[in-house]
């Protein structure tokens, strides 16, 4: 385990100073923004419900080829820096339309801190990734923190240079899939985290760290 408690305190201090994250909302493709559904400073919600079955707050409508598409919030937070000047204008793909100032929840702090504690599988290339189908199924069924993998298991599939390349676990031992840091089919920059794994034997220590974060963060 790569983290001790003094280090942990430092990291937590950093988050306490800035307990939020800013997510840009980009246009997924070209088109015309025909309506804004929110105003500056309004609260928005990401997908919710037990199965995330309730979609997020509508943000704006992007119309392209006569298909008005409702773009919804993916995170909870406050809508800010809304580019109302883009209304009724043709926008390119990947244009920033607004930001969501997202207050970090205890869970997310844990997830961020764990980047320093877990065995993190990082993107070997700037590419698109999905979980290996088998692992995906197991995770869907059992959930994070339950599924174990061992050396040689297929973890992810990378779509790169028009080829699908499987990514295997190279480390020895048995690990628990603890965190997922990417969204399927989205472009991940090389070096960005994909998965966080915890060696089975370190699980108790990890639980302690999490307890500690929980205690500190609720203060």
């Amino acid at each position: 385990m790569k983290i001790d408690f003094s280090h942990l305190t430092q990291i937590l201090q950093r988050f306490k100073a800035k307990p939020y994250k800013i997510y840009p909302v980009l246009t997924p493709h070209t088109g015309k923004i025909i309506e804004f559904k929110i105003k500056e400073g309004e609260e928005v919600r990401g997908p919710s419900g037990k199965w995330l079955e309730k979609p997020g707050t509508p943000l704006f409508i992007l119309e392209r080829e006569k298909n008005p598409k409702l773009i919804r919030a993916q995170y909870n937070g406050i809508a800010q820096n809304i580019r109302t000047d883009l209304l009724n204008r043709f926008v390119e793909a990947g244009e920033k339309v607004l930001e969501i100032k997202h207050p970090l929840s205890q869970e997310e702090i844990i997830s961020e801190v764990l980047l320093n504690a877990l065995l993190v599988i990082r993107a070997p290339e700037t590419a698109r990734y999905i979980l290996s189908p088998e692992l995906g199924k197991r995770l869907e069924k059992e959930g994070l923190g339950k599924v174990s993998v061992k050396e040689g298991d297929e973890l992810l599939i990378m779509t790169f240079m028009k080829r699908e390349t499987p990514i295997f676990l190279k480390e020895r031992g048995t690990y628990i899939i603890y965190q997922i840091y990417f969204k399927p089919f989205e472009l991940v920059q090389a070096g960005e985290p994909l998965l966080g794994l915890c060696p089975v034997e370190d699980l108790p220590h990890l639980e302690k760290i999490i307890q500690r974060i929980k205690a500190e963060w609720s203060l």
Binding site: E65, K66, N67, K69, P184, F185
Partner: peptide
């Protein structure tokens, strides 16, 4: 002459 979004677009791109 128009387009529609697949309801599963978010999940499967």
């Amino acid at each position: 002459d128009r387009t529609v979004t697949c309801p599963q677009a978010e999940k499967f791109g």
